[in-house]
Computed example of a mutant assay.
Amino acid sequence: MSHKTLLRTGPLSQGGVSPYGPVQEPGAEGLLSLPAGFGGRVVARSGSKVAGLTWHAAPDDGACFPDGDGWIYVSNSELSLLGGAAAIRFRPDGSVGDAYRILSGTELNRAGGATPWNTWLSGELGHRGRVFECDPYGVRAARPRLAMGRFRHEAAACDPDRQVVYLTEGERDGCFYRFRPYDWGDLTEGALEVLCGSGRWEPVPWPAAPLKGTRHQVCEARRFDGGDACHYAGGVCFFTTRGDGTLWAYDTQTSAVERVCDGVRAVTAAPSGDLYVSRDATRIDVITPDREITPFLRFAGRPGAELTGLAFAPAGDRLYFSARREAAAGHTFEVTGPFRAA
């Protein structure tokens, strides 16, 4: 299924019947309401041990990676000074085999993104923040990728078709960037560019931003109200803006940016072509390629919680996400069930 249909103008169709049927009564410790046939469990709690590792507070963006017959889920921590990222390794039967840190000594690691070569890009949200490329398998030390710019980094989404990485910026007048590495698969060197109002990409003269912020270096740069989550699928880069809660779609062929819907915090795509979005801090909805948005999950936790870190396991049969309230403790969940196939 193509994501191009989401770029059509006009509102999405809402209030229809989910492809999975209606949401049932809460399960998973009374916190999650899901369609029949689906189940949920808590796989990690902030401050509690997971395979010997104390799970971090303020869990945020995440991604899954293949690991032989099993898989790995990586999660950022949006804490000052004690941020970074950690990983949980799952066995083929879904049990937890290991957990470990993959990034330490950084701060405010809210969002990020997975690469096609199975590394995790973790961005720092602080002033002149950096992007760190991390090894989800815990073998190699994380490395800063300074050529990707020094600004309040949020998410990253790799576009293997054009061999670029899209980047969002957590400023009220932030920009939408792309990084073109000189050698695809090596993010050490490359060109940082910013999207302008005309749809053109212009180079950022000084990505290190020693005197002037990257968003102020190109006067024609297009502004967005607090760039947040970001996900590439099928020729479209979807990203959210925290200030106005909007889900945007950037058409990589035409450079057009379209508003998809409001009230969105995080976004990911399933192998079926469906988008899964967290909305209004209490639910996860499905947006189908034919422009229908229907409920999938309801969260009955503390008021004001954020649902973040949406990511599917490589087989597409498990969805992970975290529920957290600002910098407080959080829960990381796994949802299993008959997800639609590709």
Rank of each mutant, 00 (worst) to 15 (best):
A342V: 10
S33F: 06
G330A: 06
S104Y: 00
G21C: 01
E202H: 08
R298Y: 08
A36C: 03
A341K: 14
S322R: 00
R302C: 11
S18P: 06
M148C: 04
G190Q: 01
D290M: 09
L167G: 04
L103K: 00
L192F: 05
P92N: 12
D61F: 02
D161F: 04
L82I: 09
E25L: 13
T240D: 07
G138F: 04
C230E: 14
D98T: 03
A328N: 14
L146D: 15
L307I: 08
T268K: 03
T294S: 13
S322M: 00
L310N: 07
A155L: 03
S272E: 05
D228W: 07
T214P: 09
C237K: 09
Q163W: 03
W184R: 08
F132C: 02
T332V: 10
G83P: 04
G138K: 03
Y73P: 02
G174W: 05
R41E: 09
A269Q: 11
T115N: 03
E154R: 13
V131F: 02
T9F: 09
W117C: 05
L319E: 05
V277F: 06
D67W: 07
G84I: 01
I287N: 09
A323F: 01
Q217L: 01
V194M: 03
H3S: 10
I287T: 09
L53H: 06
F151L: 12
G21S: 02
S13Y: 15
L146K: 10
S75T: 11
T308H: 07
A44M: 04
A51C: 05
V204C: 01
A300K: 12
P144I: 01
I293P: 11
R180K: 11
G138M: 11
V42H: 04
D135K: 00
G138P: 12
W71I: 08
R298S: 12
P35F: 10
E193L: 14
D98R: 03
V277A: 07
D161L: 05
D69K: 14
C237N: 12
T119D: 02
L211H: 07
R291H: 06
R41A: 13
R101S: 12
P181L: 05
V131L: 04
T282Q: 05
D186K: 15
D93A: 07
P92S: 09
P144S: 06
W120V: 00
G138E: 14
R279Y: 10
F90Q: 03
T106H: 00
M1T: 12
A281P: 11
A36T: 11
E154K: 14
G21T: 01
G190R: 00
G170M: 11
G37H: 08
R8Q: 14
R325N: 12
L275Y: 11
R279F: 06
P19S: 13
